[in-house]
Structure formats: C-alpha cells, structure tokens
Computed example of a mutant assay.
Amino acid sequence: MTLREIYDHLDRISPFELQEGWDNSGILLGYPDAEITTAVLSLDIDEELIESSPEGCLFIVHHPLIFGKLTELDLSRYPANLIAQMIRRGQSLIAMHTNFDRTHLNSYVFRRILGLEPEREEPYLCETSVDWSLEELKERLRAAFGLQQFRMVAPRERIVSVALCTGAGASMMDRVRAECYLTGDIKYHDAVKAMSQGLMMVDIGHWESERFFPEVLAEELKTLSISVIISPSKNPFAVS
C-alpha cells in the first residue's frame, strides 16, 4: 500500500479535520506514493525506536514530532535529529493526535480499561455514575494505569460520579458535570481552581492514560495488507 492509501484509511476511521487548530496531525514525513509494507505503532517516537524498526517502515504515533513553528533544522537537536535519522532510513511518519482522542482513545480507556459505560459523552470527555469509596477508586486506578502514588485535589471519601479525559485535560474542567475528574498533567493553578469549585481531581498521568494508543489503532488496521508492529513507548518520567 502507498503512504497516501494508508493516510486515507486513517482519515476515514478518524478524520484529520477533527484535530484542534493548534494540533499537527497528518503526514509529517514521507513521499505520498511510497510503498509501505510495515507500520510501527507507538505513542511517541525516539532514536532507539527508529534504529530498531525496519528501513522504509511507516511510524504512526499519537504525539506529533513536529509541533509548533519549526524555524530551523539543527540536526544535533530535537526534533531535527530524529527527522534526519528517519530520512536516512527511508522511514515515514504520520501523527494521529487530537482527532484520535475525539473518536477513539478516550472512549476506549473509559470502557475497556476502566470498565465503565458512559452516560454522557462528548469530544474528549466521558462521564458516568458510580458508587465507590476513595479506596475503591484508588484500586481501580492502580489496576488500570499502574498508579502507586496519587496526586489528588479535593478528595472525597465517597464518589458518586466520575469523568475522564486522557492526556492533559485540566483545561476542560468547566465542562465536567461529575464530582470526580480523572486526567493528567494537572498544574498548580488548575488545582487551585478545582479546589475552589469543589471538584475532585486525580492526576492519572499523561503517558499512563494514553499508552493504549497503539493497541487501539492496531484494531483499525487489521483489514490493511501491511504488517503492523505495536511498540510500547517509554515513560519519560522515572518515579523513585
């Protein structure tokens, strides 16, 4: 299959026009007419993944490698160093970021990972009623995301409703109707605002909540005549 044909398939299952205006999803590197036999799926891309993957392969990642304004290509610095490495190996790159969050990832994590059925669902948010103690919530988050430590705002001893946004979703707290909001990358000022509004928030981690991207996308590529490799990405943070 050509890179363009794979892109068109991805566009049908998760339209790239759904991405946010600040996002940079789509074909980031490669010839549209290039023949692709292998796709490597990962949350992110790094030097080790590039070197260990086949030459001429296509990487499909969640987080765009080229993000924001790229004004120079210093090949000794990120992201130009990785771009040069992929060019040398004849590899291509597609990012599926906020469009895939909207159509697939958030719903998958809510349903398949947390085992919940949404009563209310909108772009980036799933919500439902629950009846959990604080310890029951922690146990579910340990099982789902591997969390051992919990950063919480305004914790409650009893939780009757919960909302989820994978990745970094604190900016959407005003849209949350549930009393407990699960998301990652909660900043200090977000926490102060949530506390003042009586909204319980639990930081479930960015990598921890989005690391399921490759397995979700792999399900959507089974009909294609290419080999698909799932490559778990590394958490950039070490906890000790």
Rank of each mutant, 00 (worst) to 15 (best):
P15T: 06
I6V: 09
M201E: 01
L114Q: 08
D23M: 05
F100I: 10
E55N: 12
V130T: 05
S171L: 13
N235M: 01
N235S: 01
I230M: 05
Q91L: 02
L114H: 08
Q149L: 13
S42W: 14
R120G: 10
S14H: 03
M96I: 11
L141C: 06
Y31Q: 11
I229S: 09
E72R: 14
R156G: 00
S225I: 15
P123E: 13
E117V: 15
S133N: 04
R88H: 08
L116K: 02
F213K: 10
V176S: 06
I13E: 06
V228W: 00
F150Y: 09
M152Q: 00
P214K: 00
N99T: 10
E139R: 15
L137P: 00
I230W: 00
I66S: 04
E179K: 03
S92R: 13
R156H: 11
L224Q: 04
C126K: 11
L28I: 03
L75P: 00
M1P: 14
L58Q: 11
E119K: 08
L29E: 07
T223Y: 00
E210W: 03
R177F: 04
A95R: 00
D174M: 10
S14P: 04
P15Q: 03
R4A: 12
T223G: 04
S42K: 13
E121G: 00
I229E: 13
L65M: 08
S171M: 12
E179Q: 11
E48M: 13
E72S: 15
G198W: 03
L65Q: 04
R89E: 12
T38C: 14
A191F: 04
S133L: 03
K222L: 00
D185Y: 08
I230S: 07
E127D: 07
S209P: 01
L147C: 03
G90H: 10
E157Y: 00
S231F: 05
V162E: 03
R102A: 07
S233W: 07
I13V: 09
A95N: 07
H63E: 10
S161D: 05
D190C: 06
R120S: 12
T183A: 03
D131A: 15
N81A: 13
I113E: 05
D174N: 14
S133D: 06
D190M: 04
D74Y: 02
A163L: 09
A143H: 06
I87L: 15
K193I: 12
N24W: 04
L29R: 05
E136P: 10
L70G: 00
G198V: 09
S225C: 13
W22Y: 14
R12E: 13
G26K: 07
E136S: 13
S196M: 12
I113W: 04
L224T: 10
K187I: 14
S231C: 06
Q85R: 15
M86H: 01
F110M: 00
K234R: 15
T223A: 12
L49K: 10
I186S: 04
M172I: 11
L164K: 10
V40L: 08
